[in-house]
């Protein structure tokens, strides 16, 4: 039983580490801020989630697991909020996102001052 739990925890930790490193590679490779946000979001969701889940398996039914769960919940609630604040600040300041070849005819990012309160 102990071996089973250790293996599960191993797999979760390795998976989380892999996603975190891949996200960081994306942070370096992607061409502009908006696309880099996707890479950073990846490390924040599945990277952090799997690593904390792996630690929870180690912790068992104790207060340690509860604290790890609280950290995970905080991260999952705060990370999209700060990413949205970042995207909104960059966009309101008129930073143009790079668009792909197949432009979908979205509204041009000019005229950002029509924001309703």
């Amino acid at each position: 039983m102990q071996i089973l739990l250790d293996t599960l925890s191993w797999l979760l930790l390795i998976g989380g580490s892999a996603f975190a490193v891949i996200g960081a590679v994306g942070l370096i490779r992607f061409p502009d801020v908006y696309s880099r946000m996707h890479a950073a979001g990846m490390t924040d969701t599945l990277g952090a989630g799997l690593i904390l889940a792996g630690l929870m398996v180690q912790g068992g039914f104790t207060l340690v697991t509860v604290k790890l769960a609280l950290i995970l919940v905080f991260l999952l609630y705060t990370s999209p909020t700060s990413t949205y604040a970042l995207a909104n600040a960059a966009y309101s300041r008129g930073l143009q996102p790079l668009l792909g070849k197949r432009d979908t005819g979205a509204p041009p990012p000019s005229a950002p001052e029509t924001e309703p309160s």
Binding site: Y34, H38, A39, M42, S79, N88, S92
Partner: peptide, 10 residues
């Protein structure tokens, strides 16, 4: 935003 690949901007 939480789903990687899409970020809401406004």
């Amino acid at each position: 935003t939480l789903t990687p690949g899409t970020v809401s901007m406004r």
